[in-house]
Structure formats: C-alpha cells, structure tokens
C-alpha cells in the first residue's frame, strides 16, 4: 500500500517535470541550450513535423538578430534537425525547412542573407539519444552556430 503510493507520487512528479519542459509539443527547457553571448540562446525548438516558430523561438531569434547587428563581422550557420521518428529523407527536407524558418526570421530583423547559411542534418545528429518524447523535443531544433 505504502509502496504503491510512493510509486504513484513518483510518476506524477516525473510527468510534471516533463510537462514543464514541453509545451504544445515544443521543448521549453534549457538543458541543451548553449549561448552565443550572454543572454543569447543558440537554438530554437519545433513541434513534431512543424517548422512554425513559437513565440519563445521568435524572442530567441530577435536576441540573436540584435547580437548579430552588434557584431557585423560574425557569420553563422543555421543547423536544422529533426527527431528520429521520421524517414531519413523526409527529415533532411524538414531540417532544411526549419533552419530556413529561423533564417527568414533573422532576415526580417535586418540580418543579411549573406551572413547566414543553412545546413540540414535531418535525424543524423540528435543532442539527446533518448527514445522518448522529451528527447525528441530537444532534437527538433535549429541551432545557430558561429561560422567564423
């Protein structure tokens, strides 16, 4: 009796923890995030099969754009990724679409397309090797990487 109570409490806690890191299928945690500069996260996350930027993603990209405007000599590569739950070829296309969604947004905030290149890795380079919704949500991403 006591044991089962403990177990169920534990399960609730875990799912709460995941819930707080995924909203509407999009990763909102900071586990894997690196920073281009103080307060400038390097990546944005996507929902399954989607390339739409969330409010949080747009905020991140505006910070990146501001940083890029301040550092006009910097060029970047946007690396688009997909999770493992899709066919390899479709995921390559999806990664490209995601990275371009991020690129388009940077461009609308005044970053020249000549400073931004794009590469898709599809499902080839996950950051989290887990086979669960949280891991997949971290892997559906576009990462802005300094190229010079």
């Amino acid at each position: 009796m006591f044991l089962s109570f403990l177990l169920s409490a534990c399960a609730t806690q875990t799912s709460k923890k995941i819930d707080s890191q995924i909203q509407g299928d999009v990763y909102t945690g900071t586990d894997t995030v690196e920073y281009l500069a103080d307060g400038v996260p390097d990546r944005v996350f996507f929902a399954t099969n989607e390339s739409v930027l969330t409010t949080a993603s747009r905020e991140t990209l505006r910070k990146q754009a501001a940083w890029l405007r301040k550092n006009p000599e910097v060029t970047v590569v946007l690396e688009g990724h997909a999770d493992e739950r899709g066919t390899r070829e479709y995921n390559l296309a999806l990664g490209e679409r995601r990275a371009n969604a991020a690129k388009d947004y940077l461009m609308t905030y005044g970053i020249s397309s000549s400073r931004v290149s794009v590469i898709s890795y599809g499902k080839e380079r996950p950051v989290d090797s887990g086979s669960n919704p949280l891991a997949w949500s971290k892997n559906r991403r576009s990462v802005t990487v300094k190229a010079n």
Binding site: S51, E89, L92, A93, E96, R97, A99, N100, A101, D104, S120
Partner: peptide, 9 residues
C-alpha cells in the same frame, strides 16, 4: 533526386 532551397524541397 530532391533539391532543397529556401525551405522548399
């Protein structure tokens, strides 16, 4: 083959 450009394949 596919060719991807500007987010479209």
């Amino acid at each position: 083959m596919s060719f991807a450009m500007d987010g479209n394949s």
